[in-house]
Write a protein that binds this DNA or RNA. Structure first.
Length: 127
DNA sequence: GCTATGACAAGGA
DNA sequence: CTCCTTGCCATAG
């Protein structure tokens, strides 16, 4: 299968998200070395199969925003709740409470150079 | 190579 | 807080 490097990284990054944790599309974009590609990330997730925990990726407002018919918001909510994430009826929740903050080591596994990793750390791993 | 599109993000009304 | 506009990036045609 011809999968672009971008998609491969999206898949890889998604798979390192622990159960019960979530990341935003923009955050995932940063994790794979594509700052600002939040929308492209969401687009790629749509193509990936169900082996990848796509439900752990939400928008930065702490809200489930998918309208996809095969990966419905209802399904995503259900899966997240099964992992311990509390979500209200408006499909919103406290994202900061569950946000996954990857370690430098995990980021390096995604084939990123160290200087970039440090920049991401400054932006996302600081308390 | 250019244009349109989309499971986004941030700021203004 | 919700709705709308503008900006970004990676694909499809």
């Amino acid at each position: 299968m011809n999968m672009s490097k971008f998609k491969q990284k999206v898949e890889q990054a998604t798979k390192i998200i622990p159960s019960g944790k979530v990341v935003s599309y923009g955050q995932l974009a940063l994790m794979i070395g594509a700052p600002g590609a939040a929308q492209a990330v969401g687009n790629s997730l749509h193509d990936l199969d169900n082996q990848t925990p796509w439900w752990r990726v939400v928008n930065n407002a702490g809200r489930i925003s998918t309208q996809c018919t095969t990966h419905t918001a209802k399904t995503q909510k259900k899966k997240l709740e099964a992992e311990g994430v509390t979500i209200d009826k408006r499909l919103t929740f406290d994202i900061e409470k569950y946000r996954f903050r990857p370690t430098p080591k995990e980021l390096k596994n995604l084939e990123l150079d160290e200087s970039y990793v440090e920049e991401v750390i400054r932006k996302y791993l600081i308390d």
